[in-house]
């Protein structure tokens, strides 16, 4: 079975609203970061891949299986939704065991996989704890464990780090990286830091379209020479914001250091600086005609 997802000219409508517009994407083994604003269409695309939404145009095949064959798709896909929980009164073990049953796993296999996954997500000691007693980070780790329970070929995770503290976020990212060594992992997020720390392969979405597809280094290259820092008095800040795309600022007493994106070197005193992924992402949106005036 080929380890690849082929998305070809996919359209999806919610009533008259076109949520996905002619999306074409090929995803190979490893981790793909799907980056985009809230409302960009990431979750819709994820749900289409998990056979939780039907598509109105185009085609999707996951590891050679057409998306219309929902039952087979469900058996090879692990899905961690953005907004999820489990039965609050069930223990960690019981929850996984129940979901394993729904995945058609026999008792021995369930026991083996649950033991292994609890160890992997570091929830061994919480196995008898009720779900409602888990912290946000623990719940997320339990979420990844349930998604991996039936050893899927593809793992889809939607905004998995939202609401986690920095330590949990790092732990979660590392976990995803480990998992991606064996399968396709699609990580959807609007947090650039998650992508920066985990993915080399990314796709940027906006308004239901794929704006850009490639590696992180290529996206950074595209932005080379377009990021500058300006040191100015605070009173000029409003003017700077009006003229440039501001991606960061640091206020020190009466002065402010502003990080801006500009096609050419601005006329005022500005120092060129190497772009980071956040700059590159904002520039990508800007260069594709998206409104980024909200900036920082």
């Amino acid at each position: 079975m080929e380890n690849r997802i082929e998305i070809s000219h996919v359209d999806k409508f919610y009533g008259r609203k076109r949520a996905l517009k002619d999306v074409t994407l090929t995803i190979e083994q490893g981790m793909l970061g799907l980056l985009g604003r809230n409302g960009a269409g990431k979750t819709t695309l994820m749900k289409c891949l998990a056979a939780l939404h039907t598509i109105q145009g185009g085609s999707i095949s996951v590891c050679g299986i057409p998306i219309e064959n929902a039952r087979e798709i469900r058996s090879i896909i692990g899905y961690l939704p953005q907004d999820f929980s489990m039965y609050p009164t069930m223990s960690v073990w019981e929850s996984l065991d129940y979901l394993g049953l729904l995945s058609g796993m026999d008792k021995t296999l369930r026991r083996e996989r649950i033991e292994m996954l609890l160890k992997r997500v570091n929830l061994e000691e919480q196995r008898h704890k009720r779900v409602k007693a888990l912290s946000g980070g623990m719940k997320r780790r339990l979420g990844i464990a349930q998604a991996l329970l039936h050893d899927p070929k593809t793992l889809i995770v939607d905004e998995p780090t939202a609401g986690l503290d920095p330590e949990e976020r790092i732990r979660f990212r590392n976990l995803l990286c480990e998992v991606a060594e064996e399968r396709i992992v699609i990580l959807s997020t609007h947090i650039v830091g998650d992508i920066e720390a985990t993915c080399e392969d990314i796709a940027v979405m906006n308004g239901g379209e794929i704006l850009w597809r490639g590696t992180v280094s290529r996206l950074l290259e595209n932005t080379n020479g377009k990021v500058f820092t300006i040191n100015a008095e605070k009173k000029y800040l409003a003017e700077i914001k009006k003229r440039f795309i501001v991606t960061g600022m640091l206020v020190q007493n009466e002065y402010v250091t502003v990080r801006i994106i500009c096609e050419d070197k601005p006329g005022i005193k500005a120092n060129a600086t190497p772009p980071n992924l956040e700059d590159a992402y904002i520039y990508c949106l800007y260069s594709n005609g998206c409104d980024v005036s909200g900036g920082v």
Partner: peptide, 22 residues
């Protein structure tokens, strides 16, 4: 309603089990 109120629906939906059996 328990699947809905527990936020479990998507997890149940994405499993292999057929709707009729469940």
């Amino acid at each position: 309603e328990r699947d809905k109120s527990s936020g479990m629906r998507q997890l149940v939906y994405s499993r292999k089990i057929t709707s009729a059996r469940l």
